[in-house]
Design a protein around this nucleic acid. Structure first.
Length: 579
RNA sequence: GCCGGAGUGGCUCAGCUUGGUUAGAGCGUUCGACUCAUAAUCGAAAGGUCGCGGGCUCGAAUCCCGCCUCCGGCACCA
């Protein structure tokens, strides 16, 4: 059940516009382009999407921003294709209305969990349509496109070709009725040939008819792809080997045509009623969206910026094939007008209590539902703390979630912050005290603050978010120990020094945690009563003692609310029962 | 079937690339300390023949061979 809480307001909206300071010269420093895989505009975002793609990208992006790098995070909704057409018809909406709804809804959900895009656009934008058609024409002129007749199901009654999703029949494997010809939702397999096919619109038996399709000669690029995969050392080795294996087996040319009217028109006169296959246009939307953003922000041609940038495509492991083969091959096919990606961080899938997430089997947790009950930062913290920088699957478990949040985020980090600030309030009237002589313990504390940034920076760059968080927890744990050993409540002579150092450690923690729990960290900042904005902080200043003696801190209250046993039990019983 | 990954204290995992002090961490358990703090924190202890068998080596969780078990991918999917 969803609460009435307005999730849009959870993260401040002017935060992003402040990042995008137009005075920054995009050419002065190497810009970084971060793209995230496009959500398909036919259903809600769930925890799996967040975990495999958007959160790792957002943490990375936020780290780059605080490191004062020029970074552009672009994404878009994937608006075309048969499943959308079918669902729109079911809901008696035009496909355009349907995808507009999901585009808006997805962005709201992303905002609610603090995924910060510089632009979230759509594959149905006129910019993308023109761009895709342009790319197609160039590929065609370069000899990478050919035409071929293919046999398709055709419904005489409805007078149209039936793409796979429009053909319903019996699964040849598990014999379930009423399954799509390209996917059996009962057994999860992809039928070779569906039994007893029926038209998904009128229910009559379709006939087979030939249709002229356009093919992309993926096979032209085998050598170039192999070369790229071998020489780009930023790509994950296990994935490279996996993809190289596909190339060895021989790449199939790729049918990029669909006999549909919901898609990007193929810019050829005799291709009326045909559109591009979604995977031809959707990843080109990374570029068209980026170009639109650069035009809007700087009035420039995005191409130049793109080609001088470092490019990251964040994806889940299910779309490796498209991103390691189709995407680069298409860019190669237009003479590298737009450079290839430098990095393709691939993450595994999120399991739910050790079972695969499946919407059709109702084994999933939607993002909306999650954040109607829990602080969105709890999800960010938990997922980040269990996400390795490889494509291993990870597991969402309500009990682990609750113990991580209560023990690590709240009891370790939250408590250190709270005890430090409360002590300052109580014994120093909220004024940061003047430090005295540094003893050994104090010096160790100062050293810990000094070295933390370089220790963490490397891990961030390798997108090892779980290790970053572990290091931050170690940092916080160190200061809990420090506080305990120094006993400022009884050792009055060194209490001022203890508090001065501790308060500065709180500030460091806030900056360190910004990429992970951006909302909560704003609260720390306001409790510290710093007079600048947190996002104006720079990573370079991380290890400085910037909270000065004499500074008055703000109002103190616990940052987090603990997760109660019964809340978790409630969530566990809800699993799989939501209709 | 093919390709890949994993098996380490009750649980979750790190370490393995570049073999070498009594194999680490967190949670959980037990005992103790403290009271600034959201019954929090701090200290200590118990607990593992590092899946099995062999091999190389002065020495292996770490390298090599074989076996067992589990998991993932195999071109719809975050």
């Amino acid at each position: 059940m969803l609460s009435n809480r307005n999730n849009n307001d959870f993260y401040s909206t002017n935060e992003l516009s402040s990042y995008n300071n137009k005075s920054i010269d995009v050419e002065a420093d190497t810009p970084i382009v971060v793209t995230t895989a496009l959500p398909y505009a036919n259903g809600e975002i769930h925890l799996g999407h967040i975990s495999s793609t958007y959160l790792p990208a957002d943490i990375f992006t936020r780290f780059l921003r605080i490191s004062k790098k020029k970074v552009f995070h672009v994404c878009a909704s994937d608006d075309f294709g048969t499943p959308i057409l079918i669902k729109a018809e079911q809901e008696k909406k035009t496909p355009k209305e349907f995808v507009e709804y999901w585009n808006k809804r997805d962005l709201e959900d992303f905002n609610a969990i603090g995924i910060s895009f510089d632009k979230f656009y759509k594959t149905s934008s006129h910019e993308n349509q023109e761009f895709v058609q342009n790319v197609f024409n160039k590929l065609r002129n370069n000899g990478h496109i050919y035409e071929k007749e293919v046999i398709q199901f055709y419904c005489d009654f409805d007078n149209k070709f039936l793409p796979d999703r429009y053909v319903i029949g019996t699964c040849p494997y598990c014999k379930s009725n009423d399954q799509y010809s390209d996917l059996c939702e009962k057994c999860g397999r992809v039928p070779e040939e569906i039994l007893d096919p029926k038209c998904g619109i009128c229910g009559k038996s379709p006939i087979k008819k030939s249709s002229n399709h356009y093919f992309f000669k993926l096979s032209n690029f085998s050598d170039d792809l192999k070369e790229w995969l071998t020489t780009n050392n930023n790509l994950q080795v296990d994935i490279k080997n996996y993809v190289l294996h596909w190339i060895e087996e021989g790449l199939q040319d790729w049918d990029i045509t669909r006999d549909l009217d919901w898609g990007i028109n193929i810019p050829v006169n005799d291709a009326k009623g045909k559109v591009f296959y979604g995977w031809f246009d959707n990843h080109l939307c990374y570029i068209s969206t980026f170009n639109t953003l650069i035009k809007e922000q700087f009035g420039k041609d995005g191409k130049d910026v793109w080609n001088t940038s470092t490019i990251y495509h964040f994806i889940g492991k299910d779309i490796i094939y498209h991103h390691f083969l189709f995407l680069p091959a298409i860019r190669m096919g237009i003479n590298m007008e737009y450079k290839l990606p430098d990095y393709i961080p691939v993450r595994g899938h999120l399991m739910l209590h050790n079972r695969k997430i499946s919407k059709s089997r109702n084994w999933y947790i939607s993002l909306r539902e999650f954040i109607s009950t829990f602080n969105p930062d709890y999800l960010r913290f938990y997922i980040a703390s269990i996400s390795p920088s490889n494509q291993d699957d990870i597991n969402f478990d309500w009990d682990v979630f609750s113990s991580k949040i209560n023990n690590e985020l709240i009891d370790n980090i939250g408590n250190f912050i709270n005890r430090t600030l409360s002590f300052t309030k109580k014994h120093y009237d909220g004024i940061v005290p003047e430090p005295g002589i540094y003893q050994d313990e104090d010096q160790k504390g100062l050293d810990t603050i000094m070295t933390i940034s370089s220790e963490i920076e490397e891990l961030f760059k390798k997108t090892e978010t779980d290790k970053v968080l572990k290091t931050i927890l170690k940092f916080s744990n160190f200061f809990n120990q420090y506080f305990q050993k120094k006993q400022p409540w009884s050792d009055k002579s060194s209490a001022a020094t203890t508090l001065y150092i501790s308060i500065n450690a709180v500030r460091v923690l806030a900056v360190l945690l910004l990429p992970f729990i951006p909302n909560s960290v704003e609260k720390i900042w306001s409790q510290l009563n710093n007079n600048n904005k947190l996002y104006e902080e720079s990573w370079d200043d991380l290890s400085k003692l910037k909270v000065q003696p004499g500074h008055r801190i703000g109002k103190i209250s616990p940052l987090f609310k603990k997760i109660e046993r019964n809340e978790i039990e409630k969530e566990k019983t809800k699993l799989g029962t939501i209709s």
